[in-house]
Write a protein that binds this DNA or RNA. Structure first.
Lengths: 167, 167
DNA sequence: TTGCTCCTCACGTCACGTGAGGTGGC
DNA sequence: TTGCTCCTCACGTCACGTGAGGTGGC
């Protein structure tokens, strides 16, 4: 109510946009995208000609840049102006980064899998022992290194070397 | 003997050098290294000034390039002339490559570890079952999913998902 | 002396960014 | 009309490669 009145009187009211933003949707025309990326509009056209960026197009053929496009442009801007790369270098670096990021996720998957495997292993061994214990009555001496007196729940220990830094 | 005579008469004799070559040892002076890398000697001096390559020096301050130096120069040559990178790009790519290669070895270590873990797991389970079988005489029904009738050697099966491409 | 080394300086070329100039639709 | 879009062309700048020019030691 109060807000409505403020707006009616022309007061400045901050509005929050709660809609989920699709980072891939083309929303900025070239002048806006250029300003957001701190670049000359003509530079964006040049980058497109070189295949470094591919904005969407409106039905009238106007370029429409997405959030992600702008992000990419800013990264390119950093590489060229701060690090001094030329466009061939930018292409090479972007390609390698994709590779590095793929390896990162593979590495993460492997780490997770290893942890899981360790857990499964301990569980399986414990399960085998438990089900045997339920069915049998051991007799004689316990001279096997792998067995303990019935009733003691310590799990079988398996030597597990962990990989270097598992972070 | 025959060889010796050939050499004495000035004939051309191919000689095999069996000594182990230290790839890090400075052995080529600048004109030779430049030719091997297909570059201008002055370019090598420039690259050194930019920190892209650091040849050894003789006591007389003459640059001495190693095998590895030449390899590196050839890689740089490829990047600049074939891919069109500038020197900033070359630096960036070389740095990232070191990173990628570190990740490669980590990944390889993880894969190996996972295989090892699977093997250990199966072995351990089999060992537990074997040692129990040696001590007990099972009786009653075999209604546990984890056990099989005594005397059948099939190992306990453990569900193992393998990572995507393990090559 | 010749042919290498060392160095610095300077110039030519090329890539890249950007401005100009002309068009067209809201 | 104004201010945007589209496009192409051309110029200024800068990085880089290389040649020149002068030195010094085997």
């Amino acid at each position: 109510m109060a807000k409505r009145n403020d707006m009616a009187r022309g007061k400045r009211v901050t509005r929050r946009i709660d809609a989920t933003i699709d980072g891939e949707r083309g929303v900025f025309m070239i002048s806006v995208a250029a300003e957001l990326a701190d670049m000359h509009p003509q530079t964006l056209r040049m980058y497109e000609a070189r295949g470094l960026i591919t904005p969407k197009r409106s039905p009238k053929k106007t370029r429409l840049y997405s959030q992600n496009d702008v992000e990419r442009l800013r990264r390119i801007q950093r590489m060229t102006s701060e690090e001094g790369l030329n466009l061939a270098g930018v292409e090479a670096v972007l390609k390698m980064e994709a590779q590095v990021s793929r390896m990162h996720s593979e590495l993460e998957r492997m780490r997770k899998r290893t942890r899981e495997l360790e857990r499964e292993m301990n569980e399986e061994v414990a399960r085998v022992r438990r089900s045997l214990k339920a069915e049998i009555v051991p007799y004689g001496a316990y001279d096997s290194a792998d067995l303990m007196p019935a009733g003691r729940g310590r799990p079988v220990r398996i030597p597990v070397r962990r990989p270097g830094k598992s972070g």
